[in-house]
C-alpha cells in the first residue's frame, strides 16, 4: 500500500512537470499508468486524470500569471468556445460516429504536428498583423522572457478561427474525453500566432475550467476514488509547481520540440482507435 502510493505519487510528479511545461492535462501519462501498471479500472483512471488536469492547471498558473505569460483576455475569449463545445459534445454523444471523429481529430493533429515540425526553429512569430476583432478586444499581450532576457510584445490574429477551433476542441473533450490541451496549443500557436510559451501557459490556464465541469460529474457518479485520486493529484500539483518554474526559463523553441513527439503520438493513437 505504502509502496504503491509512493510510486503513483512519483509518476504523478513527472506528469505534472511535463503537463505544466507543455500546457497539457497529463492524461496521456496518468490514464495508461494507472490502468496498465496499477490495474485501476478505466473509469476510475479517467476520473483521477480529469481531477489532476485541474491540479496541473492550478499549480502552474500561479507562476505563469505572475510572469504575465498567461494571456487572460485570450483565455476568457477562447473559454467561451471550449465550454460551449464541451456542452455540445455531451449533448450529441451517442448521435455521432465516434470512429469517424477519432480519425478526423487524429488527422487534424497530424497536420498541426507537421506544421509545428516545419516551424521548429522559430523562436517567436514574426510580422503578425492583428485582425480588427483582436484589436477591439485588446488581445495583444506582453511578457518578460527570462530565457531571452527581454520583454516580448506580441499581437494576436485569427480571433474568430481560434474560437471556432476551441469549440471543436471542446466537443472532442466532451465527447471523447481527450484533448485537454493538445488542440489548444497548436491553435494558439499556428492560427492565432501567439508566442509558443504564451500559448502553452494560456492553454494551461484554460484546461482547468473545462476539466472542472467534467470532474463535478465524475464526483456525482462516484467515479472519483479518494485513495487513488489523492496521491495522483498531490503529485501532479507539486510537479506542476516545479514544472512552471522550469518552463519560464526554457526557450519557446525547446518547448515546441518537446511538444512535437507528443502531438504525433496522440495523432497516431487517435487514428488507430478510429480504425481498429
Amino acid at each position: 500500500m505504502l509502496v504503491q502510493t509512493l510510486e503513483i505519487f512519483l509518476i504523478a510528479i513527472t506528469a505534472g512537470v511535463f503537463g505544466s511545461i507543455l500546457g497539457l492535462g497529463g492524461g496521456i501519462i496518468i490514464v495508461p499508468v494507472l490502468t496498465l501498471l496499477f490495474n485501476v479500472p478505466m473509469q476510475t483512471a479517467v476520473a483521477a486524470s480529469t481531477v489532476s488536469i485541474i491540479a496541473t492547471s492550478t499549480g502552474a498558473a500561479v507562476a505563469f500569471l505572475q510572469d504575465r505569460l498567461t494571456n487572460t483576455r485570450v483565455a476568457i475569449w477562447l473559454e467561451m468556445g471550449t465550454s460551449t463545445g464541451a456542452l455540445s459534445g455531451a449533448l450529441i454523444a451517442g448521435y455521432l460516429n465516434q470512429r469517424f471523429l477519432y480519425i478526423l481529430f487524429g488527422l487534424l493533429l497530424a497536420y498541426s504536428g507537421y506544421n509545428m515540425f516545419k516551424a521548429r526553429k522559430n523562436e517567436l512569430p514574426e510580422g503578425v498583423l492583428p485582425d480588427r476583432l483582436s484589436q477591439k478586444l485588446q488581445l495583444q499581450g506582453s511578457y518578460t522572457d527570462r530565457q531571452l532576457g527581454k520583454r516580448i510584445d506580441y499581437q494576436v490574429t485569427g480571433t474568430i478561427p481560434g474560437l471556432i477551433i476551441m469549440y471543436f476542441s471542446g466537443i472532442a473533450a466532451g465527447l471523447l474525453g481527450i484533448g485537454a490541451g493538445i488542440f489548444k496549443v497548436p491553435a494558439m500557436d499556428q492560427i492565432m500566432r501567439i508566442p509558443f510559451k504564451a500559448s502553452t501557459a494560456t492553454s494551461n490556464f484554460m484546461i482547468g475550467v473545462t476539466a472542472a465541469s467534467g470532474a463535478v460529474v465524475y464526483f456525482a457518479r462516484g467515479d472519483v476514488k479518494p485513495m487513488i485520486t489523492g496521491p495522483v493529484v498531490l503529485g501532479v500539483l507539486l510537479g506542476a509547481i516545479l514544472g512552471a518554474k522550469l518552463m519560464v526559463r526554457l526557450k519557446s523553441s525547446t518547448i515546441r520540440k518537446l511538444f512535437i513527439p507528443i502531438i504525433i503520438y496522440t495523432a497516431f493513437e487517435m487514428i488507430y482507435r478510429g480504425l481498429k
Binding site: 476568457i76 475569449w77 473559454e79 467561451m80 465550454s83 460551449t84 464541451a86 456542452l87 455531451a90 449533448l91 466532451g174 475550467v209 472542472a212 465541469s213 467534467g214 463535478v216 460529474v217 456525482a220
Partner: peptide
Amino acid sequence: CFCLVVICALAAGIYLGR
C-alpha cells in the same frame, strides 16, 4: 459577458451530466 457565457455553459454541463 464572456465570463457569463462560460459560467452558464459550465453550469449546464454539470446539470446535464448529473
